[in-house]
Design a protein around this nucleic acid. Structure first.
Lengths: 197, 197
DNA sequence: TCCTGATCTGACACATGAGTAAGTTACGTA
DNA sequence: TACGTAACTTACTCATGTGTCAGATCAGGA
């Protein structure tokens, strides 16, 4: 029956940088789980046990917060995938790419959905950003697809590229329902299943 | 500069059955395009050029309308896919399955997203319905997967099944951006690309 | 002609969520 | 110890969306 302590009004002594990181983390989860449209600043603030007003103070708007999340997730992800493109062998390169993605997302499995969020409206600040990240990832994926397939038809290639990313998205969705699987074990499983065919 | 005619108050002489079908059609598109959470009864009503109140009169609530859409889409789709499972040859059966799905969705490409809408909350009336449809489609897909693959590991099979439906979902997403493609030509393209590997 | 039921609407009440304004508390520092 | 500033909250305004209600209009039958 103990009542929760009444919310104090003054500062809690948390430096801005720390608080911003905390908010960003909660926001990535919220935007990933709910999508841009249904993400709520109120829930993000509640997760950090602060008021909504502080979120606006630090990030300006819901949209600004979303753009910050996009950058926070997109920059290192694109860097990691780019860094994985070392081998000349297409199969080995595909393996390295999927391993890089999975490793990057190991502790943040909802991040992928922030990048591939279909509910971001075109006038959102983060929209163009996300499009750039997707384009970068797409370019890398398309190169891999071109190396493996023997078609030259543009429509074929665009469909294959879409299928490649659909496969990655499906895998991550499956992963979210199988939390016991690690990035390493999943990459291994993937390799085995794809080789089977 | 002609002003639109002022909205009349009385009946427009449209029988209930016809109006219900019209609303259902608009609602399927809205739920498919926007997802359960962001779908708006106001937009559905506007598409039919009627007031929101009539939608509530006929379908009770947004949730009831959604459940009706789920049934309207799910029943014939599951029936069509089930009917396609005739051949004993796994490759031929996969071809028949994808053709059945694409043909069914030819004029209603947004229907698939209604079935695989991730934004339906568990307490929605249509949630369990959709889960049943997905389970039925999944069971059919899983049989095909089992026939093709040579693993017996349960996790492997569940991942492969997820990948199968991820592939279908990706294909339909691609299709929405390539309206000139017909069900037949897309099925043929699919077959060719999958055989290539 | 009058009445009954089907079709349909405008105007509400109410909830949720974005964004803002004004003020409170505590910390560091001179 | 006094003060400026960073951290933080409450209490609003405003917009959007759901759901309800009383009543308007029309078609068809007694």
């Amino acid at each position: 029956m103990r009542k929760p302590p009444p919310p104090r009004v003054g500062t809690k002594g948390v430096p801005r940088a720390d608080r911003e990181a905390e908010i960003l983390d909660a926001a990535c989860r919220e935007f990933g789980e709910q999508g841009y449209r249904h993400a709520s600043v109120a829930r993000i603030a509640a997760a950090c046990e602060i008021s909504r007003a502080l979120v606006y103070e630090y990030f300006g708007s819901r949209d600004g917060l979303h753009a910050a999340c996009a950058r926070f997730i997109g920059d290192p992800l694109v860097a990691a995938v780019t860094a994985a493109q070392t081998s000349a062998d297409p199969d080995e390169r595909a393996r390295a790419t999927i391993t890089a993605i999975l490793t990057r997302l190991e502790e943040r499995r909802f991040d992928w959905q922030v990048i591939y969020d279909p509910t971001v409206p075109p006038d959102a600040a983060g929209h163009d950003l996300l499009q750039d990240y997707r384009a970068a990832l797409n370019r890398l994926g398309a190169e891999g697809v071109r190396a493996v397939s023997d078609t030259t038809d543009d429509l074929d290639l665009s469909l294959l590229t879409q299928l490649w990313y659909g496969t990655v998205t499906s895998t991550i969705a499956w992963w979210q329902r199988h939390p016991e699987e690690t990035a390493a074990s999943l990459a291994e499983r993937w390799q085995r299943l794809l080789a089977m065919r």
